[in-house]
Computed example of a mutant assay.
Amino acid sequence: MVIDFSSLYEMPKSIESLFDDFARMNRSAYARNATAGLNIVEDDNNYYVDLLVPSVEHETIDLTISDKNLIIRGEVLKNAGKYFRQERGHGSFQRVITLNAPIDRDAVEATCENGVLRVVLPKSEAIKPRKIAIS
């Protein structure tokens, strides 16, 4: 009986090839899709949403607030020319942030500076801590 071990030697190469294909697929998918990283911080009075939007004109960003969500939409334009290396995606993006507390929607403010969009969401007076005087 002869056992052919050559296929065992080929298996690591085929597994490595599978991982290489997967990594290539993820890189190309990332290159096609824009993402915008964000941080959300809160203090006693406000929630602060900071969204990374490098090379996005703030006039093209759409902010919508509903009872439960803040929706941020925008588009990262593709640079002209042939990419030597691409780590930042391009195309449309949308971030939906679920609001866990009532917001004073009339007092929401947004600014965009140095590639960071900051949205200040004031908490509703009804949920703010309040001192109660004892008589």
Rank of each mutant, 00 (worst) to 15 (best):
M1Y: 13
V2A: 12
V2R: 11
F5R: 11
F5T: 12
F5N: 11
S6Y: 04
S6L: 05
S6F: 03
S6G: 04
S6V: 05
S7K: 14
Y9V: 13
E10G: 11
M11C: 04
K13S: 08
K13V: 10
S14C: 00
I15F: 10
E16K: 13
E16A: 15
S17R: 06
D20F: 07
F22T: 08
M25N: 08
N26H: 12
N26Q: 13
N26V: 14
R27Y: 06
R27T: 08
S28G: 01
S28Q: 14
Y30A: 15
Y30S: 14
Y30M: 12
Y30Q: 13
A31K: 12
R32L: 14
R32P: 00
A34F: 02
A36C: 07
A36Y: 03
G37D: 09
G37T: 10
G37K: 07
L38M: 11
N39R: 14
I40A: 04
I40H: 01
E42F: 06
N45F: 09
N46P: 02
Y47H: 10
Y48F: 15
Y48T: 14
V49L: 13
V49T: 02
D50V: 05
L52V: 09
L52P: 00
V53T: 15
V53R: 01
V53C: 04
S55T: 06
V56H: 00
E57T: 09
T60M: 05
T60G: 05
D62T: 15
D62R: 15
D62Q: 15
L63H: 02
T64E: 11
I65K: 02
S66D: 05
S66R: 02
D67M: 07
D67G: 13
D67C: 05
N69F: 12
L70D: 03
L70V: 11
I71V: 15
E75Y: 09
E75S: 11
V76C: 01
K78T: 12
N79G: 13
N79M: 14
A80P: 05
G81H: 07
K82H: 06
Y83A: 15
F84S: 07
R85Y: 09
E87V: 07
E87Q: 05
E87D: 08
G89V: 06
H90L: 03
G91H: 02
G91I: 02
S92F: 09
V96H: 02
V96E: 10
A101F: 08
A101R: 11
P102T: 06
I103G: 01
I103H: 01
D104T: 09
R105W: 01
A107E: 08
V108K: 00
V108C: 00
A110K: 05
T111D: 11
C112V: 14
E113P: 07
E113M: 15
G115D: 00
V116I: 15
R118G: 04
V119N: 00
P122G: 08
P122T: 07
K123L: 12
S124D: 15
I127D: 00
K128Y: 04
K128I: 05
K128R: 13
K131W: 11
I132R: 10
A133I: 12
A133Q: 10
